[in-house]
Design a protein around this nucleic acid. Structure first.
Lengths: 179, 179
DNA sequence: CGGAAGATTGAGCGTAGTCAAACCGAGTGG
DNA sequence: CCACTCGGTTTGACTACGCTCAATCTTCCG
């Protein structure tokens, strides 16, 4: 099955619980948060077999100092990461369960489409619990919301296999839009 | 009155609602998110009279490309912003109302103390609604939670004037879930 | 086969949201 | 000076959304 390599990045709490802070796909950069302190505040776990390309910070730094264009690229990537997290904050701060899951699926759909995969039919690489942690809700609520969308003929769901049958309806489920 | 200049940064939604994404104090840098797209995804509003020092992006870019140290400083600041937002995500994703407000007050206390102000008695420069937006709860809930803390002899609250009378108790309220 | 892990569904409950009323302080104008 | 408005805050009553606990089912695998 064709699939974009997937990682989850998460923040660990001292009692062992984790908060998933993002899911990344092929071509996306991880670990930018480590530049601040030298140590990474978050951890990344592959959700399936994946190829990774590690870039030591020292090398990156070296590269950037020699090349103004490269330095610009790094800035943009980090800045984009900040914007991405703003979206998640909006999601966690002011949306209900339906809107959260709709936003999650539409975002996933867009990113898959941009990479040449189907934007309407795909396989989730993460569990209900991980989705829930990411969206700030419990796994049972995630499951219920999937069923809810299925009842409304917005999706067809079979475990982790998802087919979006009414993209417009799903989009309407979260009509909020950042200016 | 001695006070650290305060800004709020927020994301606007098309229906007029806003999500506050942060409160900044003197010496903190704003607008890093603008580097990605050229346009800023968020807006900043002064909560009181303040002095600002604007740095055109072009200048910053110029400065960084000539000076490796400067470029490093910018990277670190942006990276720290990402870490800061991770904390907020944890807060929005996995804490209840009491824990959220406790975390907010303790954070504020620490930052004020670090700047030479009292860490136990201070004046809030933002409304209940703004605090609520930041913490992902309604203004009534913010107000109720303040009253709740007062009943527990953790705080003394008079409108926007706050005195922390039991710092340990407040810390415990915050770390209860996080351990 | 039996056990483990993930997903679904139901029942009941509790936290925080909604709606509404009252209060308070500051500013304005008759 | 007092009446009035206006924005912000507090509090109450009720509601509802999502959490908790629990049972069932499927899939996978030793």
């Amino acid at each position: 099955m064709p699939c974009a390599a997937a990682f989850k990045t998460s923040l660990m709490l001292s009692d062992g619980r984790e908060q998933v802070s993002g899911f990344s796909m092929a071509g996306e950069l991880l670990g930018l948060d480590g530049l601040a302190s030298g140590a990474h505040a978050s951890g990344a776990v592959a959700l399936e077999d994946a190829e990774v390309c590690a870039i030591p910070y020292a090398d990156l730094n070296q590269l950037a100092s020699q090349n103004a264009g490269m330095q610009h690229v790094v800035s943009r990537l980090m800045s984009r990461e900040i914007v991405r997290e703003h979206t998640l904050m909006l999601l966690l701060g002011s949306m209900n369960a339906d809107e959260r899951l709709a936003a999650f699926l539409l975002n996933l759909s867009q990113r898959l489409k941009a990479r040449g995969y189907s934007g309407t039919e795909f396989h989730l690489r993460m569990s209900r619990a991980e989705i829930g942690s990411y969206l700030g809700m419990k796994l049972e609520t995630v499951s219920r919301t999937f069923s809810h969308f299925q009842d409304q003929r917005l999706l067809e769901v079979d475990k982790r296999h998802i087919r979006i049958v009414d993209m417009d309806g799903l989009t309407r489920a979260f009509e909020w839009r950042v200016h």
